[in-house]
Design a protein around this nucleic acid. Sequence first.
DNA 1: CTCGGAATGTAGCCTCGGCTACATTGTATG
DNA 2: CATACAATGTAGCCGAGGCTACATTCCGAG
Lengths: 152, 152
Amino acid sequence: MSDLMVTTPIHSASVLPEEPTQASRFGKARSAQSGALLEDYVELISDLMTSGGEARPTDIARRLGVAHATAIKTIGRLKREGLAVAKPYRGVFLTEAGESLAARVRARHRVVVDLLLAVGVPFEAAESDAEGMEHHVSDATLAAFARFLARD
Amino acid sequence: MSDLMVTTPIHSASVLPEEPTQASRFGKARSAQSGALLEDYVELISDLMTSGGEARPTDIARRLGVAHATAIKTIGRLKREGLAVAKPYRGVFLTEAGESLAARVRARHRVVVDLLLAVGVPFEAAESDAEGMEHHVSDATLAAFARFLARD
DNA sequence: CTCGGAATGTAGCCTCGGCTACATTGTATG
DNA sequence: CATACAATGTAGCCGAGGCTACATTCCGAG
């Protein structure tokens, strides 16, 4: 989601020669969290449509382990963000932006899982941890992962 | 008692009450997020006390890039969770639980950064991304990272 | 065609992690 | 010693992401 995320102002340049470095690192980690949920939804919706033709709120809720009302509310956010469209009592569909975000997320997920497997992480843990880690993987890190996987 | 030989039960189960989620990987990734902030605070407080003798709310706020009121509120949570103690207008101090959590967090952080560096991630990106990723690294994955780093 | 159950949507409440604005305390200094 | 100022704390607001409870709509059997 990095491409289309509205970047928060974070902070003004401090007068102090202290380290604003750590603050920005924490800040980045934190703001990366905003968007993680949307990324998960978009990826899941894409999955559901590919493998079943439709994405219903109930399925989404079940797959994410949340109440259906929560899923519906978040789908509303997806619509506001221009990532999805949905008419009442019809399924949910991704917009162009949503599809392209889903593709990027899926690609990143695959690289992260592969990297974890490559360094010896058990499959189950790799799949599970990647779900949380992937949202914090920067482009630079992702590129390094890809290079590492392409070695030999 | 020093945390030196406390066989750390490892991981944040201490911080988070487990819920009866039938959820998939998503649920785990999500709940891991809930302790991330506390982990950051505890690690930072530990750092500040080591390298300056005291941890003041203002310093914590500046280092985390948040308003001081936010830091104070979160310190309140730390106290509720039994990770820190603080008397009004005095500094913040970690409890035994807080210290031991800080130690585990710091150790995990180092392993994650080292792993990233080992697979070719640039230093800056490694430090930055690790900040967000580390909170999603399970024990199994952490162990795998350690094994990978110990290989020859 | 009707009707009941499942899916969908709405309303209202909660906590967390931010923020600003304001109030209070501690302390350094004139 | 008084007091200005920085640090600390309090109050109240916001949005995100959860939940439950209730209302509505859709659809497949009869």
